[in-house]
Design a protein around this nucleic acid. Sequence first.
DNA 1: AAATTTACTGAACAATGTTTATTTTGCAAA
DNA 2: TTTGCAAAATAAACATTGTTCAGTAAATTT
Lengths: 204, 204
Amino acid sequence: MGISDRKERDKQEMRKNIIDAAMHMFTHEGYESASIRKIADKIEYSPGTIYLYYKDKDELLYDVQAECFSKLVELFQKEATDADPFKRLEQICHSYVRFGLENPEIYDLMFMMKSPMKNVHEHEDWENANDALSYLAKCVQECIEKSLIRFEHVWMAALSIWGMGHGLISLQIGCRMKIMDMDSDQIKEAIYASVSNYLNQIKQ
Amino acid sequence: MGISDRKERDKQEMRKNIIDAAMHMFTHEGYESASIRKIADKIEYSPGTIYLYYKDKDELLYDVQAECFSKLVELFQKEATDADPFKRLEQICHSYVRFGLENPEIYDLMFMMKSPMKNVHEHEDWENANDALSYLAKCVQECIEKSLIRFEHVWMAALSIWGMGHGLISLQIGCRMKIMDMDSDQIKEAIYASVSNYLNQIKQ
DNA sequence: AAATTTACTGAACAATGTTTATTTTGCAAA
DNA sequence: TTTGCAAAATAAACATTGTTCAGTAAATTT
């Protein structure tokens, strides 16, 4: 059926339209401005229309999140390509930290906000993050196979590395680094340094 | 002046009243239920009254956060008392992780939510967290002085340890651990294991 | 007892996510 | 081309938010 195909295509196009508007709102005006009404305004539709394509805001944010993750994966593919697995691991971490610090609102949506995760139910998996996390996991696996890091289990290594990176980034984004008496630039340097230092500590 | 003293005491008492109600709301009904109106309802005042004691909700949440931090410090003082600095460090981390995993809403308020931090301005310090962080920092300092951990700078060690702990806890609270195909209990075990493992890695 | 300051209220405002009755639109059949 | 119908979009409404403010009650001072 050609017609229902086109209908489906139109629907996807409208969704893309909505996602793009939301994304733009997020990056340029900040999260607080990304209300359903303002997104609707931007694409020149009424607020109700968005609910013909998404059952609620969480579902929409989940799709925006997906878009963000594909940008992160792109970044990995561009910046983390060293043949040596450990160096590649360093590149991944560096890209990840920079991505977080330069795009705090987007990082928030991807790794901190609860609302986009509301529709990822128990025993379902979080598809959005699969590619990005696989990129890390594969690299970690190679590192372990070649005995480049002091870990035995891939998942534990990946979790620890992710944990360290995310911890520092999210403390900064959440303004908790105000406890340190450093200015913003010093803090960012400290975060990069801490992650590098950690990688050196697990190196063997 | 005795009268203005009593006035001040009354004011503090009312604040305590509000904080307690908010805290109870937070822990028992969850963050979403902790609206100004519901807090006002609980203490049997009108919503407007709360604004005679707090200029906005952020300021109120900041005070609730303070209460939470004093509970965390109490926990440290109860559970992290080993004479050996490294063992004490392990106790601190263990208490911190357990506190986070058992009180996700409170942990959120303390370490994740932006709103209570809105009134902590640039070049001001985040008083609420001082005692808790000092507890960690002092312990770390002793560890470094006795060459028990592979770190030279206190602040970098503290930041790294905090970063790792917070990273893992907040990923779990923010539902990001759904990427791992483990159930909730397994994930919690993995978090404890990762933190312990990290401490062993920095041990020297 | 009267006047004044303080404490509190309750209604209103603006903004949010969401639902629904109604209208507009697009398209196939007559 | 006109008619009828289904799909798409809207405008208005609802229930919540945080917050403000004019008015009222209470407490204190004169």
